[in-house]
Design a binder for these strands. Sequence first.
DNA 1: ATTTCTATGTCGGGA
DNA 2: TCCCGACGTAGAAAT
Lengths: 251, 251
Amino acid sequence: MLKANLTNPNPEQLRTFLTEHLKDDTCLIQVASECAINYTGRAASTAQAGDYLVLIKNDRCVQVHGPKGVKPVNWQPKTNRITTSIEDGLVVLKAERYSPKEIVNIIFLEPALALALTFRDHKGAVLTGSEAQMRSALARDPSVIEPGLIVLHEELPVKVGGVDLYARDQQGRFVVVELKRAKATQEAVHQLHRYVQEVSKRVPQEVRGILAAPSITNPAMAQLNMLGLEFVKVTALPAGDEENKQVSLFG
Amino acid sequence: MLKANLTNPNPEQLRTFLTEHLKDDTCLIQVASECAINYTGRAASTAQAGDYLVLIKNDRCVQVHGPKGVKPVNWQPKTNRITTSIEDGLVVLKAERYSPKEIVNIIFLEPALALALTFRDHKGAVLTGSEAQMRSALARDPSVIEPGLIVLHEELPVKVGGVDLYARDQQGRFVVVELKRAKATQEAVHQLHRYVQEVSKRVPQEVRGILAAPSITNPAMAQLNMLGLEFVKVTALPAGDEENKQVSLFG
DNA sequence: ATTTCTATGTCGGGA
DNA sequence: TCCCGACGTAGAAAT
């Protein structure tokens, strides 16, 4: 896994190291160094000199991590070109993206460590409890929402977006269901309202709107009532479900 | 900056290393290893064995990086407790968060490298071009949006959310301005529409709605026209601005 | 602690 | 490519 490493490299060594390993797209490159970083593109930012960890992954996306938080201080999700140079005796790495036009510039003021790690490619993570999973589970068994409900469409595209579940209730009324995997906010209520209005234009009958989520904020609940819409509690990860229990068990 | 390192450690060595350096909140810990990762909390995920880079920052947030993308495969933004143990001869790191209740479990199957890096704390990055900056700039000089516009409120809270700019035009009509720092979508149009409707309830006069953004998607533009709302082009980073030019210049 | 909103959001999917 | 919406969004600010 460890392909190469370099401690306290001088600029020439570091630049050679980077040039060399940037050619290999099976390896992740890392430099721990005092850096100055500059970004221009969708916005612009400048970071004063400080200690940072620079990661360049197999897919050549770049991220610069400071000592705090999950988010990098600077990053570039996709790079079209990475170039290195030596300016004023310091190694400069330039990560460019063409569309949108963005540049991240990293000056290595005092590199302490450079690493190249060979990353074998591997299966990604399997996620349980996503909205898509909730949706197909509810489409299979809509009685969780309400007895007698019949699902007509999953992900029905309407002009203003996509209706998560389109159904018919026991009395034959059409039902629009908006699904949220986390606590529902006012935004979700408005989204549901839009869909109900849109569907109402197209069918003569009354259209019900149901917001299905594990919980809802107080302002959202008030808004929901005012608009004559309904809330149904639905959990993403049913605690008692035997199948899910097995998936969740670990160690 | 390099505090300690360990290559191909055995489980006891790795565990001692982690225990030792987890005490020091001025250092960032890193382990490159074949791992199996498991998360339960807001959702649940399991990652098959593969090569990963595990970062534990000064603030004890944890992130596990795969070979692709800016986003970690698994992470924990805030940890209340990090524990290590040896199970079946393998080091297991458990990062817990109490609220919401979340656990990330990392099993180090074949650690190749463990590092501890001392990160001096440092100034954060200075960002230019945020929506907040745009807003205050426009509040100072609303003529950019329209000559004769007078801003009455910045961030005016309405029941359905916050109006970015609330103003009055030359003819005395009230104007609701919705601001977007990036390309405006249909969602932004609906948001503006909601605000205009809400404000219309409270004032007798006609209320104008302006969407101010650097650009707008085609469907959003169509929707905007249909609702009788307006679009004004506003860039977050004015290209010709001398001050900004200097900030943007680099290397 | 809860709610809301921004973000260089990132990422994936669909037309 | 553009466009849209989910996300374990993260993180900050206001309540």
